[in-house]
């Protein structure tokens, strides 16, 4: 087979596989713009809706309380993610740049946390927060999320920082640059791909987290998106158009974050892989 022929086959096969991969999403979009009567008349998720019903989105936003859950989720992410990036990058900076004794041991100690199941901490955290009168507060939720994010953050930043040549530190020290300025003005700007990677990963993890949130926050108006969707599902269990619209709305913020940071993503991941 000649080169062009092979190329065409390559594209055809890949495109078919990709199209199958997107089918669930197509189904979701078609259901979101379908009216309820249309849905029950056809009982076929792939038929084209007779009339596009945009009001599903509006109803999901207001009646389904989705706007509230989205706001809660965004606020949680906007506080948690930058704080997490700051704390874990500082930790990785200390481990790779500041000649700390047993830095490898400390790293191993922190790494183990990445692998422990959240379940392990559920009961003790629940007891701790209720004793401190912190149940149903965003403080408890965000503080817990930061704790669970430290391992991954340290891993990613440590991997990246190690690839930054030490000569940079020496040059900076000769110019009279202290450790704080080395971190703020030299290392962090160089580590932009790692910061971008952590922003995506951390945003995704925080936005999508379900189990901790369902235990720490029980008040409906304080729920973030995954638990909000569960309440939403319970309330409108048979209105599939509304549900689909709600699900679609809930993934828009994640899409935006991905599109903004995706260029630097693979590069930053390469740093994480090289532990």
């Amino acid at each position: 087979m000649n080169k062009t022929g092979r190329k065409i086959w390559f594209y055809v096969v890949l495109t078919i596989v990709a199209a199958v991969w997107l089918l669930p999403l197509v189904m979701l979009v078609l259901s979101a713009i379908r009216s309820t009567s249309d849905f029950y008349a056809k009982l076929n998720l792939f038929s084209i809706p007779e009339k596009i019903q945009w009001s599903n989105f509006k109803d999901a936003w207001t009646d389904g309380n989705l706007g509230r859950y989205l706001f809660n989720g965004i606020r949680t992410c906007l506080i948690k993610v930058p704080l997490g990036v700051l704390i874990s990058s500082m930790c990785a900076f200390a481990l790779t740049r500041l000649n700390i004794p047993h830095s490898n041991g400390i790293f191993i100690f922190i790494l183990v946390g990445m692998m422990l199941p959240v379940q392990m901490a559920l009961i003790p955290l629940n007891i701790m927060y209720s004793k401190l009168n912190l149940s149903n507060t965003y403080f408890s939720l965000i503080f817990t999320y930061i704790g669970f994010g430290i391992s991954l953050g340290t891993l990613v930043f440590r991997g990246f920082f190690r690839s930054i040549p030490k000569e940079l530190d020496e040059a900076a020290a000769m110019d009279g640059c202290g450790k704080y300025r080395l971190y703020v003005n030299i290392i962090m700007p160089v580590a932009k791909p790692a910061v971008a990677t952590m922003f995506i990963l951390d945003f995704l993890n925080t936005w999508n987290e379900f189990l901790l949130q369902s235990v720490l926050i029980t008040k409906d108006t304080m729920k973030t998106v995954p638990n909000g969707l569960i309440s939403f599902m319970g309330e409108f269990s048979t209105d599939y158009g509304l549900l689909s619209a709600g699900v679609l709305i809930s993934i828009i913020p994640v899409l935006i974050v991905y599109l903004v940071f995706q260029r630097q993503f693979v590069e930053g991941m390469a740093g994480a892989v090289k532990t």
Partner: peptide, 8 residues
């Protein structure tokens, strides 16, 4: 799909 929550 990896970006979507398990719930979705």
């Amino acid at each position: 799909p990896y970006m979507l929550s398990w719930i979705v």
